[in-house]
């Protein structure tokens, strides 16, 4: 075919086989990054709108995961102690969304997903990236990906709160225990998915046992490590399913709060 002058760097570096094409893949390698962009952008748009909407996030006895823990005095409902009153333009969601946002942004799986799809570094395997220089995660700001474990811990705390919210879903609108509606199930499911996502985290795997060299001397942590390793194999799946879970849970609560739908009660 061709012997056109190659690019000076990358696969065109001196000495390498001269092939002008950026890649020779014939499969639909661009589908996966395209889907990732589409889904993540939709989620970002939806969650931004909801975070600033400051309404329709609470309907007895349910609270949306976007607004929980609801820590300011302007909160609807009383699922959590109201700690302070911030400026009016900051909705209660803004204070807490930073944590799940940071958790997912620094997640090893999401990093892979957005480095590939948004930053095209690389867009797909053996497809040349468009950047001329590359330093990976060695410098500011990406060196901060290394604090992922702290977000993991914060994520666990949030999971506790969301589990508590789901338990509160067993009260009825008058605060009496012994109720269960579709919303209760949805909140429980959402919390369960978030636990699976958090517990399958790579930092979790490291903390429970991955850092140890002699497993035989730490049999209990070895057991934990094995369980987390098993979950870790599905981390990507949990990352997506729990993301959908949070958005759908919020959407369900919005439907209830705007009276577009009424919560089916089981008892």
């Amino acid at each position: 075919m061709t012997t056109t002058a190659p690019a000076p760097t990358g696969t065109g570096a001196p000495g390498r086989a001269r092939i002008a094409a950026r890649h020779l893949r014939t499969d639909t390698w661009w589908v996966q990054p395209a889907i990732t962009v589409a889904v993540l952008v939709s989620f970002i748009i939806y969650s931004t709108i909801r975070a600033f909407e400051d309404a329709h996030y609470f309907v007895e006895p349910y609270i949306s995961p976007f607004y929980s823990p609801c820590i300011t005095k302007s909160c609807q409902g009383d699922t959590f102690p109201e700690l302070f009153s911030g400026p009016a333009f900051l909705t209660p969601a803004i204070y807490i969304l930073i944590l799940p946002l940071g958790f997912r942004l620094t997640c090893y799986y999401y990093r892979k997903a957005y480095y590939r799809s948004f930053w095209l570094s690389p867009p797909a395997c053996a497809v040349a990236e468009p950047h001329t220089t590359y330093t990976g995660e060695t410098r500011f700001p990406l060196i901060f990906q290394n604090i992922h474990r702290y977000f993991f811990i914060a994520g666990l705390a949030l999971n506790v709160v969301l589990t508590y919210d789901a338990i509160l879903g067993f009260r009825d609108e008058h605060g009496e225990w012994g109720h269960m509606g579709l919303g209760t199930l949805i909140l429980l499911g959402n919390a369960a998915l978030l636990w699976l996502y958090s517990l399958s985290c790579h930092s979790c795997r490291h903390i429970v046992g991955g850092k140890i060299n002699s497993f035989s001397k730490h049999p209990v942590r070895y057991q934990f490590w094995q369980v987390v390793s098993k979950l870790n194999g599905s981390h990507m799946k949990y990352a997506w399913v729990s993301l959908f879970g949070v958005a759908l849970t919020d959407f369900y609560i919005r439907l209830l709060a705007t009276n577009a739908f009424s919560d089916p009660r089981f008892f």
Binding site: Y108, R111, K112, Y115, R116, S121, P122, C125, A126, Y134, T135, G136, E137, T138, L142, I143
Partner: peptide, 9 residues
């Protein structure tokens, strides 16, 4: 190691 951006190729 810091150069690797865990994109898994």
């Amino acid at each position: 190691l810091g150069m690797c951006n865990i994109t898994k190729c």
